[in-house]
Design a protein around this nucleic acid. Structure first.
Lengths: 298, 298
DNA sequence: CATCCAGTATCAGCAATACTGATACTCATG
DNA sequence: CATGAGTATCAGTATTGCTGATACTGGATG
């Protein structure tokens, strides 16, 4: 099971085509066909149906392992590479939308002015992508948020050694349209909202799967899937009555047309965590120190 | 980064020798040397010091990834292979010493008599090995125990999809020699014992690292490391005053010369969990069902 | 300090492999 | 049934990966 072949296999599944995968990888179609055939004879199982190209049951199993394997291979390379370059001229931060608060923004500005020649970059993306960026060296630091029980850490994929540190913690709130009948309530219970219409915005808010896990409920049958990291756009949908979503309690203040009501039950918090490799670059370590000491402003 | 080369690299580190690794892997020493050289040029970093052979800093980093990678590769192969053989003539159980209780033993006996032609095997080993066995297909089922906060699951390496289910939960107890001054106490606080002499028996009892994590303490400077899975031998050492260790409260009844005193603080439990692949073999699923329904006898 | 030796690096040669390019095949579509 | 987009197969070639022989090197020994 050559990683090259696994990478080809994943590309074929993603492109749903041998020839498209070949083009994407810079191989000939013949090579791709041979890679897949080699995997199939090695594992003694058909991995793909052809025409249409789709993973078989065995292929699905392999996929569950192939993606993490390839990620970890990249992470390994990045981890070794980091040893050779401890003081780069850049500071790349990957963060999920919910983590960009006045406090974190201020820390970034300070880091910027403390080292003016530093190329500081901020990328807003989904949690998975942010974690992967730090693992594979695309970013030096990540800020990710999520909703979990107060004592639990955020669930992260285990693809390598990562240092995690809680930066801020505040109540989790439901975002309601301003005209919603529940707006007056001081708090809400999540279980009472399980049957409401929700928007599943995995990259812009807390994924519904996480709420389901935290509430230990089977509800949250979502009505609408929202792809992207634009919180503003999400709030417009909420205001228009497309469905509910969640956010940190303080995050709703500047969003028009929506009202945030804290969740009292179950005991869930919205937590932001700082992630970095075990040996961060010097500017990353400094920013991390700032963020750690600043902590939550409220 | 060819997995073959990673495997070679790991073998060299383990054997602390190129030639010994070559012999173990069935290669020539020349091939091993070339594997390592290839990795080093690929990663642009020296991975090993020669004479004595030891991993460099970069080598240590790579090792952190190489072992999990190789494990997951095996797990992937095993996961696909399992699809082809859902009803084997065997039932292999890997378990840690603390999980062999009357209840689990009884379930095994029942499984045995329910399917007399089944080759039932039980292997007692450390937790890591038990988990690896299930992942790589060496075992169909695993029983592992550990000490964690009541709401947390046991910490397991994330090398593939595994189903975990709590089987029994009971107070965690400290094993004291019968003559120990604290024997009379109804309960003990772990923090008060942080400075005591401990035996770190990672494969026969709860690893001290886990206690340290649970107690959020830096103590437990152990005096003695105990390798192996023989609980009886461990209890003899405890009785002789070599140090303390922990066990499930009920486990000390049949051990001579030692007394178990439950821990009241912090709120830790001794939990046994059942592990199996997402699609267990038929006999494994039946045994799992028995164990789940039996639950804790006390 | 010279010698020795266990162990690692290097090199040439050969066998196996991993691509490409051409071509045969095969299923879905009109 | 004809067509075409897409996959499988095959021969040929460049590359890789291993072995066996040999050169090299650092640490132990007297």
């Amino acid at each position: 099971m050559d990683p090259q072949q696994l990478r080809t296999f994943v590309a074929v599944v993603d492109h749903r085509s041998f020839s498209a995968a070949a083009q994407a990888l810079g191989y000939t179609q013949s090579a791709v066909s041979q890679h897949v055939a080699s995997l199939e004879t090695d594992l003694e199982a058909p991995l793909l149906t052809r025409r249409p190209v789709a993973p078989t049951e065995a292929g699905e199993r392999l996929l569950e392992h192939a993606r993490p394997l390839l990620l970890r291979l990249d992470a390994a390379r990045a981890d070794v590479a980091r040893l050779r370059q401890v003081r780069p001229g850049r500071l790349a931060v990957a963060c999920t939308p919910g983590t960009l608060t006045p406090a974190t923004a201020l820390a970034l500005v300070r880091a910027r002015s403390a080292a003016p020649q530093l190329a500081v970059s901020v990328r807003v993306c989904g949690r998975t992508e942010a974690v992967q960026s730090v693992l594979t060296g695309g970013a030096d630091l990540a800020l990710v948020d999520g909703a979990v029980a107060a004592t639990d850490p955020l669930p992260l994929p285990d693809a390598g050694p990562l240092t995690a540190f809680p930066i801020s913690e505040e109540p989790l709130a439901v975002l309601l349209p301003a005209a919603h009948p529940l707006v007056g309530r001081p708090t809400l219970r999540l279980a009472d909202l399980a049957v409401a219409r929700w928007i599943d915005a995995a990259d812009a808010a807390v994924p519904l799967a996480e709420l389901r896990a935290a509430a230990q409920s089977d509800g949250f049958g979502h009505q609408l899937t929202y792809t992207g990291t634009d919180v503003r756009g999400l709030s417009v949908l909420v205001a228009a009555g497309a469905g509910l979503t969640t956010a940190a309690l303080s995050a709703a203040g500047d969003l028009p047309g929506v009202v945030a009501v804290p969740i009292s039950e179950p005991r869930i918090v919205h937590r932001t965590e700082l992630l970095h490799p075990r040996t961060p670059t010097t500017p990353a370590a400094e920013l991390a120190a700032t963020l750690r000491s600043a902590q939550s402003p409220r």
